[in-house]
């Protein structure tokens, strides 16, 4: 199981366009990808509704995890999207 902990930097938080890009990227993976607020319950990173409902604001930390071939690369990309201002 690969895991990353990153801080969300976009001004709008993980909402609107950053959230859409994040979910679109996760949805391409053939394996499960999850996202949680630090210490919170993980939800599917492929679900825009679940991601929005987490209500991640600018400066908050998220934990993303996945297991499968190419999981490391995918998490790197997702971490980059989340940490893009």
């Amino acid at each position: 199981m690969a895991e990353r902990k990153v801080s969300v930097e976009a001004e709008v938080g993980l909402h609107a366009r950053p959230a859409a890009t994040f979910v679109q990227t996760a949805a391409k993976a053939p394996f499960d990808v999850s996202i949680a607020k630090a210490g919170g319950r993980p939800v599917s990173a492929k679900s825009i509704l679940s991601v929005l409902a987490l209500d991640v604001r600018q400066g908050e930390a998220i934990v993303i995890s996945a297991d499968g071939e190419g999981a490391e690369e995918l998490l790197d990309r997702l971490a980059e999207i989340a940490s893009t201002v």
Binding site: A20, Q24, K46, S47, L49
Partner: peptide, 11 residues
């Protein structure tokens, strides 16, 4: 974004 919601796998 609305279309993504309609295609949401959890939903």
């Amino acid at each position: 974004a609305q279309a993504m919601m309609a295609r949401d796998p959890e939903l």
